[in-house]
Amino acid sequence: MHAFQYVAPTSLAAARELLKDAISVPTRVLAGGTDLLVQMRAGLHSPARLLDIKKIPETNVLCIEAGQARIGAAVCAARIGEHDALRRLCPGVAEAIALIGSVQVQGRATVVGNLCNASPAADSVPALMAAGASIRVIGPDRERWLPVAGFAVAPGRTLLAPDELIVELRLPVPDAHTAEAYQRFTPRAEMDIAVVGVGARLTLDRDGCCRAAEVAIGAVAPTALPAPEVVAAILGARIDEAALTRAAAAAKSVGNPISDKRGTADFRRHIAGVLTRRVLRTAAERARQRSL
């Protein structure tokens, strides 16, 4: 690995100070490092500076307040798995995050890192998109909020400017008629990269009809994609076998999957359908349970 300067500011103000010359001193943000360090060793990035955000209090926030779940950019996946309320209220997001890597990786990897790595197969992203999550981005002297949907623009590339970092991620906590689910498919039971991942959040009315839904699919395109055609197939309908079959058929047409070492394009399309059916069934069941 190339040599670099390591800095670990202890406040947002100090981090902003460091971001001021992040363009002349090419900087990468270090949180869990589970992707970044591997990529640096492989020679994919050679930053002059690593900015470790783990000592900044704002990046360590993990709570539910005012109807929002707040997940700091330095919060590791394992902490999220240990947060009972978050797991109960946002099971789709929680189960997606729980799938990131091994137990060892869970102890380091962060959700925001999973976003920034911008892999089309990132497990958390379809779930976060379906949940309507957004991120707080700061630069040397500016700040903005961005939705998770659309944040990744290509494999390994995001909307983040070279002198910006993400402080936290927020998502609305679902109401009592809304529930979510995420599933991915991998050849191995664990320690694997999603061949396809599907996240969904849906709201049922009193009659069990779908009043609102968001579905997103990972690994069928260069970035995870929202799936409005799947939503259209179930909106207003009871989530029964017929609706699930329509949704699965619609899911197969989402994106433009490739054939690679992890699966063929045809296989991905097929699996997108299978998982969409399974995820919507689970989410609907959870929504029914919640409304009881």
Partner: peptide
């Protein structure tokens, strides 16, 4: 492996199981 995929370098950091290959010494 050096990529966090085999667990041979597992250590416990502040109570959490971690691959030592995925942590910088300065951290």
């Amino acid at each position: 492996c050096g990529t966090g995929d085999c667990g041979a370098c597992s250590v416990i950091v502040n109570g959490r199981l971690t691959c030592a290959c995925l942590v910088l010494a300065v951290e």
